[in-house]
Design a binder for these strands. Structure first.
Lengths: 248, 248
DNA sequence: CTATACCAGTGGACTAGACCACTAGACAGT
DNA sequence: ACTGTCTAGTGGTCTAGTCCACTGGTATAG
């Protein structure tokens, strides 16, 4: 099956053509319609979809960045092999992260409160004096085994109607995106090794003072406002973070 | 000073125009000739340099990815504020990594040998039966204090003349790039928390069983061949890894 | 004084071409 | 059986435009 067959573009849509093409191809690759090794010619794609070659190239560019396709000069562009390891590090919630590792995520809410954060916490969220925040502490399980303790802070302003029950049900990021129209942009993460406190060890079912991976994450919206500040304490023996680095 | 003044492009060079422009602008920004907040107009740039606007845009694209400039729709493109934190995670050697943190790196070679790796090590480097490898173990210091123990494996084939003295002097990545023409591409990293062994604790001047951050890195060349496999054990109390994540 | 309408400038998207270096296969000549 | 040469196809680079939505200032009408 050639790339781009059966793709319908909406030229009057507000989403750019290159983005439509990108999503269509991503779908075909992830859905297996385009097998690894399958060639995608820029010229063929542009003729089939009746767009200029530059536009087709722009669509392929994003997929190449993601590693879904690769290009060899003079030979062509090809669908990449499925990579099992999580490569390019993306902004994922715990649920998504675990799913990619082939594990089933679950969680237990340890506490859920709305409060006036003290200055140090307020600063993490860049809150003004008097603004309130949610604090959600969850025990995260992977395949029914404790994996991490996640303490997240959210400005009340961004999700005023958030209920304990909502969080119990689904992914927090999904709620933010779907119910509150928050557009997640990027995040800064700091990873460090530490010793589990007695309390953490108890919750994670590990020995006190066992090594844990502490991940502190600040999540920004596309407008660079802060949406969430999370501190996750992962079991050192069960969790690894994977990253792909680039040289210039 | 307007962007692109005094920039000379070599239209007959083999390096693409957009790359020349990119490098020139990067130099001007890093050298302070273009101050943060300074506007860079795509049209002005393309007229000044006598290139088409698409080419100018392509040059700006890479700088935007790096975070050196940012764009506001309808307003313009501007030089970004200097960010002190290491944001986009790049492939850096220990020396470069510490320099960016404002620390002075030093190192002490604990062992340097050329050997026939056993199957498990050979696999990490994708070596054929019988091929040799270098193993270099170094104690890494930051501002004269032990920071990490780095064990790196290199295929002998890629740097046959490597001497202990070379490594003693300079950055390994610099040697590989400059003396052997190795073009570093990307790297995969795995980060995990662990307990220091007695030996590691002694070398790092920390208590036995203190938490350490173990970073395992595989470095690839631009042709996807494996150049190096490193295992670094960082002091948990002094080292943090920072990453920037992106959402789609 | 305050709206509002206009306008010049910006980046975003897109087109329809062009020439180049490189690849791989076919084909002909030794 | 080998060895070049030709050729079609590929991605890489580049041009010179077009139209659009958005921004911010300025002039103008109420």
């Amino acid at each position: 099956m050639a790339a781009g067959n059966s793709v319908r573009l909406d030229k009057s849509s507000f989403t750019p053509l290159y983005h439509q093409i990108e999503q269509a191809l991503r779908g075909q690759i992830e859905g297996g319609e385009l097998a690894p090794g399958q060639a995608i010619s820029e010229r063929e794609l542009s003729e089939k979809l009746k767009v200029s070659r530059m536009t087709a190239r722009q669509a392929l560019h994003a997929l190449r960045e993601e590693g879904l396709i690769y290009t060899e000069r003079g030979r062509g562009t090809f669908v990449a092999e499925q990579k099992m390891t999580v490569h390019t590090r993306q902004l994922l919630g715990f649920t998504e992260d675990m799913r990619r590792r082939g594990l089933v995520a679950a969680s237990k809410i340890l506490s859920f409160r709305r409060f006036q954060p003290e200055p140090s916490a307020a600063e993490k969220l860049r809150l003004e004096e008097g603004e309130e925040a949610f604090e959600i502490v969850r025990l995260r399980l992977a395949d029914h085994v404790p994996m991490a303790i996640e303490t997240c802070l959210l400005p009340v302003e961004r999700c005023p109607e958030l209920k304990r029950a909502d969080v119990e049900r689904g992914s927090l990021y999904q709620i933010l995106e779907q119910s509150y129209g928050v557009r997640l942009g990027h995040a800064d993460e700091v990873l460090e090794a530490a010793c589990a406190t007695t309390e953490e060890a108890r919750l994670l079912s590990i020995k006190p003072r066992s090594p844990v991976l502490v991940v502190t994450r600040t999540v920004f919206a596309t407008d660079d406002s802060i949406i969430e500040a999370v501190r996750s304490v992962y079991r050192g023996d069960r969790y690894q973070a994977t990253i792909q680095l680039k040289r210039r």
